[in-house]
Amino acid sequence: MSAARGTALLQVRNLRISFGSLAAVRGADLTIYRGETHCVVGESGCGKSVTALAVMGLLARNAVREADRLVFDGQDLLRLSESQLSRLRGDRMAMIFQEPMTSLNPAYTVGSQMAEVYRRHRGGSRAEALDRAEDLLAKCRVTSPRLRLGQYPHQLSGGLRQRVMIAMALMCDPELLVADEPTTALDVTVQAQILRLLMDLQRDLGLALMLITHDLGVVARMAHRVSVMYAGEVVESAPAEHLFGNPTHPYTRGLLACVPVPGKVRRDQPLGAIPGVVPRIGPRFEGCAFRDRCGQARPDCARTVAWQANGEHGYRCVLPPDWTGPASLAA
């Protein structure tokens, strides 16, 4: 690593993404530091995957992306052309996806798909690229890596394909790895292995890992920093220990109340739940999007809510940091 852990690698300010009349992301802020795992959590549809795709410049054509700032290692991504951006993607920033079964091209071997990204960004011979691919497959704990290079995706299991995706993402030694729910489609035992692998790789390679997930258990194990998203906004962001020790936004508290902790939850007691669903939000929406589901809602929640920051811990809510009371309406 050229720069030390703890300096900002990716800065996102006031990111807005819309699909026609649907505002998918409404002013999200995010700072990802070198060498750190930054988890982005939230329910389905909160805009976390779209945010990740926007960072990579991979949004669908019908999406409109705007931001005040989108800076990767001093480079303004907003001002790069598609071809300049493609020189960064796969080289200095890489991404893996939720669907390992369909994310590899069925028509080409593992080896040729892995070699291709290396040769695109680094040049060199095919043999050189294949050697590197073999090393990385081994590093990703793929058994008989040399053999895998000649295999096609359909000959591999889901877990193996995700390992191949991870190894392929690492071909050019990226500084940032974006992982969009990389274990959602896998068996529970395989999930644990893949998360362990990501954790080890993050530490060993000094990666900045942006991990999108809805699983707070994963966040607790892996995150250095956490951003909680709700309905297209980051509602709370903090170092992991602060977030778990002192959750402040009512939505964060609600989320944490939904996690069953062995020994703390009685068997006959219903699990915690936040009533209602994530609202569909148009472009003219004002105020806090959570207010309809919030037990603490007040009239001024309908106005624009300011970001309150206390050191590295910030949240978007009218309540003071030490408020007490039920997180949400009783179900």
């Binding site: 990579m56 598609e82 071809s83 493609s86 960064l88 796969g90 369909t102 990204v117 695109r120 392929m168």
Partner: peptide, 16 residues
């Protein structure tokens, strides 16, 4: 398809 999204994430050229 997802594999085209992967190809774009790899930064491959448009023609590729």
């Amino acid at each position: 398809s997802d594999y085209i999204r992967t190809a774009r994430a790899k930064g491959l050229s448009r023609s590729s």
